[in-house]
Each structure stands twice: as C-alpha cells, then as structure tokens.
Amino acid sequence: MNWLSAAVAALVVPLVFQFFRRSQRRCVASLRERYDLANLEAKYGHYRKWDVATALLLGLPLTGLAVFGSYKFLTWLARVGIPDVSDTLRVVPADRIVFMLPAAVSGLLLSFGLAWCAWRLVLRQNYEEWMIYGILKQGIDHRRVVRWLLPAVALPAIVLLSFGFDFYSIATERQVIVNRMWSLGETAYDYDQIETIEVEHRARRGNGAVGSVPIWSIRFRDGTSWVSQRGFLEVDPEVLDVHRAFVETIAEQARQPVQVKFVRARQEEAPGTSQ
C-alpha cells in the first residue's frame, strides 16, 4: 500500500501547506492593521543586530548542544531501563538511531524555549510587541510555526521513545531474551531453540580500498530471528564490538558454530559518474 500512502501525502501535504500560508498571511495582515511597522522599527530596530548575533553565536551552538545532550540522555536512559536479570552475560541496548528524532525534537524545543525566555527577560513588558515587530518584519509568526510543527513531529517522536525504551536483547546463562522494536513484551528462547548463527561480511570497495561490514543474525526454530543493527551506524566500532560479543556469547552457550558468509564487494560510484 505504499502507492496509496504516497498519493495521500501528495494530496494532503500541499493542502496543509497552502492552509498554513493563508493563515500566516491573515495573521500578518491583521497585525498590520493594528500596528505601525515604522514606529516598531524605530523602537526595536536596534535590537535586530543583537537578534542575529545571538542566533549565530549562541543559538546554533546551543541548539547543537541541546540536541546532542538530549540524544546522550535518552540513550543513557534506555540502557538504564533494561531489566536486571541475575544471570545476564551480555546486553544489546536499543539501536541509537531510534533516539535521533526524539533528541532533535526535544533539543530544538529546548533551544527555542531558552531563546524566547532570554528575550522575555531582556524586554520584559515589551516582549510581545517585540515579537509582533518580528512577525511584521519577517512576514512569519515563528511561535505559530512551532505550534503547527510540534504535533507533527512530537507524535512520531513519542511513539519512537515508547518502543525504543522497550527495545533490547539479553543473553543469559540459560536463554536469549529478545524485546523487538515494534513488539510489546519480551520473547525468551532457550539455547536449544537456536537453529543457526551467522555472520555475513558485506565487502565494500571504494577509492581503491576494500572494507568489510559484518551483519550478525540468529535464527530460531519458530522462524523468527535476531539481526544486528543495519544502516549508517552499522560501521560504528562500538556497536560492532557489542554485537560481536553478544553473538559470540550466544554461540558459546548454545555450543553452535558461527557460520560465515561473504558478499562480493561492489564498486562505490564516484560522484558525478552515475547516469
């Protein structure tokens, strides 16, 4: 049903965008009837240079710091939330990519909130008039934009967090406990339920060098499987070490060999060579 989702998005997104643009225009037109931009310019124009300087020198670094801090906090919180099983040997926490969107949302909200609070402290009773001046000057109400975008990005972020905090794998002395990303609750497998343990080395060739990216997988007798993280974080040495230790521990406990597969290298196209 991907074509249906794409068709709905192609129809809905432009309509929402047009509705938002008209809403912004009505808001600006209404303010222009009540406020004189020239008077506001004379009163607050000298603050503009400080506004730009603050955004460049403080806003961008603080936003990056807020996003990074939120990301580190969420990944730490996910690790802390993993159940403490008495005979645990190895643990694989949630894929860190799960927390990137929630971290971006929380970091941006934090940075915007701090910026607005700072200007409110500086301008005090003139804060609302200053914000109106910004709307008339730029033709857009940033607070309205945030209110529109917040539900659109916050809902997916909350869903990701809800499942991400309940996403982990544990190898114990007796069994493998898997709590998959989009599942509710754990699934425990005894070691005699393991059918195969494999590592697939995906060779990649680029700039004259050949590298190998291992992908580990464990297949159980009920047809389900556990697969190590894929995507752009799959080459992270820390992630690879965690997965390698996890699978080697399971292979030792299950007394099964790790079957090795190789996928031929593919030549990475240089920029500008594709048709």
Rank of each mutant, 00 (worst) to 15 (best):
F232I: 10
A188Y: 03
Q267T: 15
H142S: 15
L121W: 00
R32I: 08
W116V: 14
F232Q: 02
R79Y: 06
V80F: 09
Q175N: 04
G107T: 08
F20M: 12
T54S: 15
V92F: 05
G134F: 01
R255V: 03
L160S: 06
I140E: 07
A78M: 01
P61A: 07
H46R: 11
V159K: 01
F20S: 10
R255E: 09
L121R: 10
R22C: 10
F68N: 09
R219I: 13
L240I: 15
E269H: 13
S86C: 04
M181A: 09
L15K: 09
L184N: 12
V28Y: 05
D51I: 08
L11Q: 05
R204Y: 09
I215Y: 12
D222I: 00
S106E: 06
K43D: 07
G107N: 08
E200I: 13
V67E: 10
Y168R: 01
F165G: 02
V98A: 03
A55L: 13
R26I: 08
F112S: 12
R32K: 12
R22M: 14
M131S: 11
F163Q: 03
P14V: 04
H46P: 00
V85L: 12
Y44F: 15
L77R: 11
Q267Y: 11
A118C: 10
A66V: 10
R90A: 09
G223R: 02
A55G: 14
A7W: 07
T196V: 10
F220L: 01
R32L: 11
W76S: 12
L60A: 12
V199W: 05
I215F: 13
F20K: 06
T187K: 08
M100W: 08
I82R: 05
F163D: 02
V210S: 11
R230T: 13
A188R: 14
P214Q: 07
P214I: 08
R147K: 14
L149A: 13
Q275L: 15
A118D: 06
S111K: 04
E128I: 13
V13E: 05
W130H: 12
L108P: 02
V210K: 06
V52I: 14
E269D: 13
V145E: 02
T196R: 13
